[in-house]
Structure formats: structure tokens, C-alpha cells
Design a protein around this nucleic acid. Sequence first.
DNA 1: CAAATAGTGTCTTTTAGACACTATTCG
DNA 2: CGAATAGTGTCTAAAAGACACTATTTG
Lengths: 210, 210
Amino acid sequence: MTYRDSHGRTLQDYPRPSVAVDTAVLSVLPDGRLAVLLANDGDDARLPGTFVHPGETLARAALRALRDKTGVDGREPRQLHVFDAPDRDPRGWVLSVAHLDAVPYRALDFDAGRAELRPVDEVRGLLYGHDEIVRMAVERLRDDYAASPDPAQLMPGTFTLRSLQNLHESVLGIDLPRDTFRRTMEPQLSTTGGIERGGVGKPARTFRTR
Amino acid sequence: MTYRDSHGRTLQDYPRPSVAVDTAVLSVLPDGRLAVLLANDGDDARLPGTFVHPGETLARAALRALRDKTGVDGREPRQLHVFDAPDRDPRGWVLSVAHLDAVPYRALDFDAGRAELRPVDEVRGLLYGHDEIVRMAVERLRDDYAASPDPAQLMPGTFTLRSLQNLHESVLGIDLPRDTFRRTMEPQLSTTGGIERGGVGKPARTFRTR
DNA sequence: CAAATAGTGTCTTTTAGACACTATTCG
DNA sequence: CGAATAGTGTCTAAAAGACACTATTTG
């Protein structure tokens, strides 16, 4: 059955845009800097993206692009914004749905030949205006990390409050007071009963997200 | 010049989705209830929407749909979410970009034969799962109205603090303490120097948004 | 023991809210 | 004057932050 509108036309009779997805994968480097995953495009860099295929959701397309363009397994792409300026793309009418995905550094097994992790402070001059997407992604992630512990699940299963605070400071780009951080976050966590002896100093209790 | 990809194909060689926009126009009724503009669709109701045309932005398409389906002049549609389930629409592959637009009641000159304003508390059973869009629109507008005075510019050019508070209470769906509201909002407003004599009681100074 | 880190008591500052008072109008 | 609304002083409660203290480990 083909559906027809009041003029007897089907969906195929109207021009349609191409729809792309571009994803800012954010992660925290071992040195504590917040970074974004970029794909090489000739001499330039861009966010990994692709056109959406029939029968595919946007999130699925975003994950496929990450895998195909960078070798990375993404997790849960979230929509940020649809870029829709009609003359954005010289190839024609293309809408691009920007996404954010947060992936732990330890799970980022990217193909160094085709991709790089660049600290967000050093992102400038990406192709297709992707700087703006990075900016929106960082802002969204920072909003998420303002009040609750590791909402994007970047920590491993169990962790100490100190390591959780380090993560939050990396994401937010600011230092946090240790005592206030503990008082805010501890009630939102579960204790594992475990202890982590990290070398010098009093061993720390370990927690997990609830 | 037609751009070709690495397989020598153009954008036209790939299947593309139809892209629709659906807009929740929110407004405050004279009785103080927050309401959404619905378009009649046979015996049922839905948010006004349309397919996006070539050369047109999403916001422009949303405004066109409001005008054509309800007779309303919208203002500044903002994106909420892209609904992308591949089997959403029986007519085929259709992405729908949900929008929010806030319009003052006094500017809502809608066509009563084709449209209605329904209090958001009474919205249930809209076509195409549009209940969910209304829910998202209300949530977003409430977030906006939590901390700053009339961010969607629903008030006229000058207004008293009491009338501003009434608006905020309508949008948020809760009562606010009068003294705290004043102390939060007044520093974010400019005085006009004007006075509004509203009948009984001390006349109120008028303000405008900065 | 010194150094280092975990964990916490307590004081101060800030902010939101409660409450009540004064100010100014209409009828 | 009484009723009604505008505007504000002040107290309390809650939350965030500063600071310093105790606790427990390694070397």
C-alpha cells in the first residue's frame, strides 16, 4: 500500500534532503584533559559522520560512522542540534544532526592512522563548521556533570571519591573543593565495602553509581 | 558542478528520508493556564506540522505550517528533538523534528475552525505520538522560566512585577513567593519610570526586560 | 616519625523562604 | 477608615565553601 496525500501524491513525489549525522565523542585523557575524537579528512580534521541509511536510526548511523571512520565503538549518542542552513553543503541539500557521545578513554581503541584525540581547548578550524558542535557538546556534558556523579558513566564499575572528583574536574575544566564535592556526591553513591590502597596515604573506600 | 563521492555517486543516488517539522506552540490563557495550540485532523488533534521544502530552514517550515494549518504567526521555533524510529510513519521513511515556540495569547489569532488551544494538563491521545512533544516543550519552557524573567518574551513591552510573577506561575504551574520572586527578578530588569494604576491598592512601578 | 591522602567537624557566607511590617491607592 | 495591593526589613533555614582537625597508610 502506498499512501497518497490530498493531491494524490506519494512521499516520493517531493524533494527530500540528505540527512547526515556528525558526532563529538568526548573523553578524558590520562593527563586529565577533556578531548574530542577527530577523523582525518585529507589534511584537515572533522567530526566522524555519515549519511543516514534507510531503516536506520540516527543513533545507529552515528555509531556506524564512529566504527567506520575511526574504529571506535561508541555508546549512546545523544542529539544536540540539527544544522539546517540550506546552503551549508556544496553537494546539495543536506541536514546534519549533531550528536554527543561520551566514551571512557580505556574503551577508545581508535585507529591512529585515521583519527586523533584532540584536547577541546585546542580545537579550531574543523571542516564543515564542526567547531560549533564541539562547543555545544562540551557545554552539554558540563551541564550534565554539574550536580550528579558521572552521569555519562565514564568511570569503571567501582572507584574512589578522589578519582570521581578528578573526572569531574576534567570534564568541568575547573578545580572543585574536596569536602563539598564529597558531601554532594556521596549520598548519591553506593558503597561497595571495598577499599583501595593506592600507595601512600589512608586507603580510600570504593563506591559505585547507584 | 555535481559533487561525486569516492564511488562516483552523487547525493541523488542514495535514498533519502522525508523530513517533517511539528511544533508545540505554548501560550498562557487569560485564566492563567498554560496551553498548547492543536490543529484538527479529522476527529483527532495533532500538533501543526509539515514537510520541509527545499531551500527552507526547519524554523521557516515550522512557521509556514503554523500559518497554513492554524492561521497563527509564530515567532522563533526552537528545536527539541528529532524523532527517527524508522517505522514511525506508515507512509514511509519520515524524520520529524519537534519544535517549541512560545507566543503571547494576545498575538494568537488562530482559526477556531481548524485549531484549538488546549491546556497542557488536558493533552492526551494526540496523533503521531505528539503528546511526547508537548511534554518535552513544557519541560523546556519551565527550565527557561526557572531563573530569568520572561526569557520567551511573552510579556508586553512594559509590565509590573505582579504580572510578571503571574506569568511565571502559569508557566511553571506552581505558586511562587512574592518577596523572593521580586528579589530574584528585579535586578535583571530595567525600570521604565512609569507607574501602573490598576484599581485598588498601591500603584505598581513598571519594568521592561533588559 | 614525616609525608601523603582520606574523611569529617565546624564556622562563615550566601541564598531562599517565612513573616511581618510600612506605603499608597480606591471606595 | 477598611480593603487591597506594592514594596521592604529582618529572621530563619538550608546549602556551599573555607579551614582545620583527626585517621590511616607507606617508607
